[in-house]
């Protein structure tokens, strides 16, 4: 027993003493809030298909947070114990993740935010898209289409989530430019298509012929509204409908002329964060993801910026086929 212990101690001492071999890949962990929905699937696939992963410069492990802040906290503890070289963090909640970031920071592990913000100044950098902007863009589309007059409804995300708060801020900013437009209903459908469908069915009954525009804070809910309109035998084209995220079903609906969507590039958010995580450990590293050449509005700046803003892409009849082709 004693010998075994001794051997183990000396092996660990050796490992500490040896400089990390050059070919040893970096170990990066990604803690994401949950993998049940399409958006995070796209994010995760992009991370695993990053050129640096394929070239063996880095290995990534994705931890499914199961929509629970405590689970994410525990996953951070696991990564700290195992000595990861960096952590990419997509928190479930803007506030609840701060303690996890602090723990990693105290252990000397840099944390990179992606997609969802966390209220912590200890993040090394953040790669995401500005939800206020997308909220403004989608509401602007709806208001332009109805000619800045008439009634609209807003279907919101879960009240209090950062995306709901910021997208609403953007919605209201656009609405302020159209003082004649009245918001006759504003309720949450918790990002859910089925819930939004029920809500819209009931609104169509309560406000017959009065709803001109539907601002869905995500695509799922906009799609639910479309199904409700179809179910009630109205013409979808008589409504201006918009959503956010660019999920596959929404791209198909844009193609059919039923709605507008604003694509959130989850793949770029994932790959950008990974490039930053690698650069933090390898000073000579040049970013390998093609997103840096694709988005000229988002310069790499030697990986030294605190925040990288991935631009939104409005999905149009012109680019929808190209975007759909990327999904298969």
């Amino acid at each position: 027993m004693k010998t075994l212990l001794k051997t183990m101690v000396s092996i660990s001492a050796l490992m500490v003493a040896m400089p990390a071999a050059a070919q040893e890949p970096l170990k990066i962990g990604a803690a994401v809030y949950g993998l049940n929905a399409e958006f995070m699937q796209i994010w995760a696939e992009a991370l695993e298909n990053h050129p640096a992963v394929r070239d063996g410069i880095v290995t990534v492990t994705i931890f499914d947070g199961k929509y629970d802040a405590l689970v994410q906290q525990e996953q951070f503890e696991t990564m700290i114990t195992q000595g990861y070289d960096g952590i990419i963090f997509v928190p479930i909640d803007i506030e609840a993740g701060a303690a996890a970031v602090q723990a990693a920071s105290e252990a000397g592990i840099p944390v990179f935010g992606s997609n969802t913000r966390v209220n912590s100044d200890l993040l090394t950098a953040y790669v995401g898209s500005d939800d206020v902007q997308s909220g403004y863009m989608e509401a602007k589309y709806v208001l332009d289409k109805i000619g800045c007059t008439g009634n609209v409804v807003i279907i919101e995300g879960p009240i209090g989530q950062s995306a709901q708060i910021q997208r609403l801020e953007g919605n209201l900013k656009a609405l302020a430019e159209c003082p004649d437009v009245k918001v006759i209903e504003q309720r949450t459908a918790n990002w859910s298509r089925a819930e939004a469908q029920t809500l819209m069915e009931n609104w169509l009954t309560a406000h017959p012929g009065e709803i001109a525009g539907v601002i869905g804070q995500n695509d799922e809910m906009a799609l639910g509204a479309i199904e409700a309109i179809k179910g009630a035998k109205f013409e979808v084209t008589d409504f201006a409908i918009a959503g956010i995220d660019g999920i596959t079903d929404a791209l198909l609906a844009v193609k059919a002329g039923d709605m507008a969507s604003i694509l959130q590039d989850g793949a770029a958010q994932a790959q950008g964060a990974l490039d930053l995580a690698i650069a933090a450990k390898m000073p000579d590293y040049k970013p390998m993801s093609e997103i840096w050449t694709h988005y000229t509005d988002m310069p790499w700046n030697d990986g030294k910026d605190k925040a990288y803003n991935v631009p939104w892409t409005p999905v149009t009849a012109e680019n929808v086929d190209a975007l759909l082709a990327l999904r298969n």
Partner: peptide
Amino acid sequence: MLAARTGSALTQA
């Protein structure tokens, strides 16, 4: 019936 109604079968359904 839910999938037929919403037009898509969702894993979170």
